[in-house]
């Protein structure tokens, strides 16, 4: 008995467990490295291949059969137009929906349905939005394969992002602010417009920029509504046909001729610079408002 008891005694085996700990730590560091090295290689590859193709002419030229004369002017303007229409469509509707869910909605089945629905929409593949745009805006409403169709399709695509981040921003407004306003006799609409929304603006702007930076890189839904791949004019109105930066990049990536792969990389640099500056603005807004609330 005594012998068996001694056998069952806890043995720490610390050296062995420490070795395991080191091995696990090494694996974890390795996984971090996979992520970081992947990111760095990707950016290095793009810069190395594309930097030589960047020039003033690359920005101001239209696409061309000759890589040294090709540029992103048409795609850049298409992207600017799409961004504008997406913004005008997604932000008012998205913020409105967020205000409804946070300030008005009763706790009932309709509200739960809307919430569930927004969560699911955020996971719908972007190409499916393209099919929606194709069937509804083009076939049903006859808006054509235009900037307006593209912007509205993109607006629907990013709306869940706007709604979710606006809701967070609205929820973060202290309820004492609302109570104070109600105490002074303000109506619900006055509380929303005069108190809640102004306080939530920085958060809403951050979310909007996130939504826009998602929209700027999306190519799939634009291809589904048949944006063009070779455009030699800058759009002048919402009913023009168009191309956008990611589609221009896609068509250059697909082009097996000499030089076009470099053009694609240069286009990617332009796209990433635009994206980075948008995100930098979002971070600036966040930092500025954070310090203010600490004061």
């Amino acid at each position: 008995m005594a012998f068996a008891d001694r056998d069952r005694r806890f043995r720490p085996k610390l050296p062995r467990r420490k070795r395991w700990g080191t091995a696990v730590y090494a694996m974890l560091v390795l996984s971090i490295l996979v992520g970081i090295v992947g990111l760095v290689t990707l950016i290095a590859q793009v810069v190395v291949e594309g930097a030589g193709w960047l020039s003033f002419g690359f920005i101001t030229n239209f696409p061309s059969r000759f890589p040294e004369r090709a540029g992103v002017w048409a795609a850049l303007w298409g992207t600017v137009w799409i961004m504008g229409i997406t913004f005008l469509f997604a932000v008012p509707v998205g913020v409105g929906a967020a205000v409804y869910l946070e300030e008005y909605a009763p706790k009932n089945r309709l509200t739960r349905l809307i919430e569930l629905n927004i969560a699911n929409l955020a996971g719908v593949p972007s190409i499916v939005y393209g099919l929606l745009g194709l069937a509804v805006f083009i076939s049903l409403l006859g808006l054509g394969r235009t900037l307006l169709t593209g912007g509205m399709t993109m607006g629907l695509l990013v709306m869940p992002i706007v709604i979710i981040s606006s809701r967070e921003a609205i929820r973060a407004v202290p309820s004492t602010y609302r109570e104070a306003a109600y105490g002074l006799g303000a109506t619900r609409f006055q509380v929303v417009i005069g108190v809640v929304l102004p306080q939530a603006v920085p958060g809403i702007m951050t979310g909007t920029i996130l939504a826009m930076s998602r929209a700027i890189g999306e190519a799939a839904p634009m291809i589904a509504i048949a944006a063009l791949t070779f455009v030699t004019f800058a759009p002048t109105g919402p009913m023009d046909r168009f191309t956008v930066l990611p589609i221009q990049i896609y068509s250059w990536v697909q082009d097996p001729r000499e030089g076009f792969s470099g053009l694609a990389a240069a286009g990617i640099i332009v796209l990433l610079v635009v994206l980075l500056s948008m995100n930098a603005i979002a971070i600036l807004i966040r930092n500025k408002t954070q310090t203010r609330s600490e004061e």
């Binding site: 970081i36 992947g38 990111l39 590859q45 793009v46 792969s261 694609a264 995100n279």
Partner: peptide
């Protein structure tokens, strides 16, 4: 944030990376 940058890169860029690198 460095890891999360990966989530913000457009998918055409990943396509280019896969094909050319």
């Amino acid at each position: 944030p460095a890891i999360e940058v990966l989530a913000g890169i457009p998918t055409v860029v990943y396509g280019y990376f896969a094909l050319t690198f």
